Deep mutational scan, measured.
Amino acid sequence: LPHTAVCLVCGEAGKEDTVEEEEGKFNLMLMECSICNEIIHPGCLKIKESEGVVNDELPNCWECPKC
C-alpha cells in the first residue's frame, strides 16, 4: 500500500508497529479488500461474526467481512 493510505473509518495510517502480539498487529495494520478496494484497519470494522479471508500471496490484501 502507498505511504499515503489511511483507514476509511478512523483516517489513520497503519499502527501495527505499536504492539507486540500478532493478533494486535493484524487489527492495526491497513488491509485493502480485493473486491471493494476499501482500505481499513480490521479492528475498525464493527463486524464480529465473521473474519475476512486474508490473501497470503499479497501483503495487506484480503476479502473483507462485508464482501
Rank of each mutant, 00 (worst) to 15 (best):
L1I: 15
L1H: 07
L1G: 09
P2E: 15
P2C: 15
H3C: 02
T4K: 00
T4E: 03
A5Q: 09
A5S: 07
V6K: 14
L8S: 05
V9L: 09
V9G: 06
C10W: 00
C10F: 00
C10Y: 02
G11T: 04
G11S: 09
G11N: 04
E12L: 12
A13V: 13
G14Y: 09
G14K: 06
K15N: 01
D17W: 03
T18R: 07
T18N: 11
T18A: 03
V19M: 10
V19P: 02
E20T: 08
E21G: 14
E21P: 12
E21Q: 05
E22Y: 05
E22K: 15
E23W: 03
G24A: 12
G24Q: 09
K25C: 05
K25Q: 06
K25Y: 01
F26P: 08
N27C: 01
M29A: 05
L30W: 05
L30M: 04
M31A: 07
M31D: 02
E32F: 07
E32A: 06
C33P: 01
C33V: 00
C33W: 00
C33S: 01
S34R: 06
S34V: 10
S34T: 13
S34Q: 12
I35M: 12
I35G: 08
I35L: 12
C36G: 01
C36T: 00
C36E: 01
N37F: 06
N37L: 11
E38F: 01
E38V: 08
I39Q: 15
I39M: 14
I39F: 00
I40R: 07
H41I: 00
G43S: 04
K46S: 14
K46M: 05
I47G: 12
I47D: 06
I47W: 09
I47Q: 08
E49N: 15
E49D: 07
S50F: 12
S50L: 09
S50H: 07
S50V: 12
E51G: 07
E51S: 08
E51T: 13
G52M: 06
V54P: 10
D56Y: 13
E57V: 08
E57W: 05
E57A: 13
E57G: 10
N60F: 14
C61R: 12
W62H: 01
W62S: 03
E63A: 12
E63I: 11
E63S: 06
C64L: 00
P65N: 00
K66D: 10
K66R: 08
C67Y: 00
C67T: 03
